[in-house]
Amino acid sequence: MKRSVLVGSGSALPKNCVSNEELAKRVDTSDDWIRERTGITQRFLAGEGETTASLATAAASAALDDAGLTIADIDLIVLATATPDNTFPATATKVQHQLGGKGFPAFDVAAVCSGFLYALTTADAMLRTGMAKRAIVIGAETFSRILDWEDRTTCVLFGDGAGAFVIEAQDNAESGAGIIASRLHADGEYGDMLFVDGGPSTTGEVGKVRMKGREVFRHAVTNLSSVLSEVLEEAGCKAEDIDWIVPHQANLRILDATARKLGLSMEQVVVTVDQHANTSAASVPLAFDVAKKDGRIKKGDLVMLEAMGGGFTWGAALMRA
C-alpha cells in the first residue's frame, strides 16, 4: 500500500518573545488572568520584516534539512494560513520562489486553525494518487497582525510562527509508517463564533479577530473527541494504542478535556500552548517538531494530530512517525 511518510519536520518563530507580564503593560490584563484561563505564559510576535512567507520559508527549509533533501526533490507545496502575505498571489508561491523551486504546484489552504490538517490531508491524497512524489506541507501565521489589541479576551490568546512537514510517497512503507487515516469536517452554521470582521469582498479591509470563547470551547471538546473516534475506527485502532496526541494549541483546558474524553493521560499530550500561545494553522506542526526534536516522539510512535478552527472546521489524522 502506498502511504505518505513523514521524512522531515521543521519550525520557525519570530525573534520577539513577549511574556504575559510584558503584554500586561500594553493590555488591560495580568499574568495570573491569562495563565488561569488559557495556560499561556508567553508568545512570539512578528516584527518588522517578518511575515507569514518568511516564517514559512524558514520552517520549510528546516524540514528539508531534517529530511536530507533539497527543493529539487520536491514537487508540491501546500501551505495553510489565515494570514497570507497578500490576498494573492498565494503565499505558497512566495515560499516556493524563496526556496529556489519552480514549476510544480504550490497553493494555499484556508481553514484557520484546522488548516494544517486540511493541507496535510490534501497533500496526502495527491501523493497517494501519484500526482506528486514529495511534498512540503506548511502551517504558518502572523495572527498578531489581525488582533484587536484593545480586546483582552482575544489578543492575549494568539502568537505567530510556522511549522512544516516533508512527506514522501512510499510503497509498502516500512513498519507501517505514514499517514494511516484522516477525517475532515466543517459546519458554516457557527461561522459567527470565531471570525475576522473584514475581507476584500465585504469591507475591503483586513478586519480583526472576534470570538465567542465559551461557545467555541464547548464545540471544540465535542467535535474533537468525535473526529478522533472516527479516525481511530477507520484505522482499526483504539485510544490506548496512541503514543502521542499533537493537538491544536488553543487552550490548555480544551487539551485536558479532549484527553479525558478519550481516557488518555495528559502525559501523552504534546503541550506547547504555554510557550507559543495559539498559532492557528502553525500550532500542530510546530508542536510536533518541538516534541520530535526533544526526543518525545520517536520513529514508530503512533501519533494523532487534531485541530478545530473558525468556520467551524475540524479534523484529525493518525500517523506512524
Rank of each mutant, 00 (worst) to 15 (best):
4 S>T: 07
5 V>W: 02
5 V>D: 01
6 L>Q: 05
7 V>R: 01
13 L>E: 00
15 K>P: 03
18 V>C: 11
19 S>W: 09
21 E>Q: 15
24 A>L: 09
28 D>M: 14
29 T>M: 08
34 I>L: 02
38 T>M: 04
45 L>Q: 02
49 G>L: 05
53 A>H: 02
55 L>E: 05
58 A>N: 07
58 A>D: 09
69 L>A: 13
72 A>C: 14
74 I>R: 03
76 L>K: 02
78 V>G: 13
79 L>K: 00
82 A>K: 00
83 T>I: 00
84 P>N: 10
84 P>H: 09
88 F>K: 15
90 A>R: 02
91 T>R: 05
93 T>S: 13
97 H>T: 13
101 G>F: 04
104 F>M: 09
110 A>E: 05
111 A>S: 12
113 C>F: 04
114 S>M: 05
118 Y>H: 13
119 A>D: 06
124 D>Y: 01
127 L>N: 00
130 G>T: 06
135 A>P: 03
140 A>N: 04
142 T>N: 03
143 F>K: 04
144 S>F: 05
144 S>Q: 07
147 L>S: 03
147 L>D: 05
147 L>Y: 05
150 E>K: 15
152 R>P: 07
153 T>K: 15
158 F>M: 09
159 G>F: 06
159 G>P: 10
160 D>V: 01
161 G>T: 04
169 A>G: 09
169 A>R: 08
175 S>I: 15
179 I>D: 09
180 I>E: 08
181 A>F: 00
182 S>T: 14
183 R>F: 09
187 D>I: 09
193 M>C: 14
193 M>W: 13
194 L>V: 14
196 V>P: 02
196 V>I: 12
197 D>C: 10
198 G>H: 02
200 P>C: 05
203 T>L: 13
205 E>F: 07
208 K>R: 15
208 K>M: 06
209 V>T: 08
210 R>L: 08
217 F>Q: 14
219 H>P: 03
219 H>L: 11
222 T>A: 15
224 L>T: 15
225 S>T: 15
229 S>E: 14
235 A>E: 06
240 E>N: 14
244 W>G: 00
244 W>C: 01
245 I>E: 03
246 V>K: 00
246 V>A: 03
256 D>I: 01
258 T>E: 09
258 T>S: 12
266 M>N: 13
269 V>I: 15
270 V>F: 00
271 V>F: 01
273 V>M: 08
278 N>M: 03
283 S>Q: 03
283 S>P: 02
290 V>C: 06
292 K>T: 04
297 I>W: 01
299 K>L: 11
301 D>P: 08
301 D>F: 04
304 M>P: 09
312 F>Q: 04
314 W>P: 07
317 A>K: 01
319 M>Y: 02
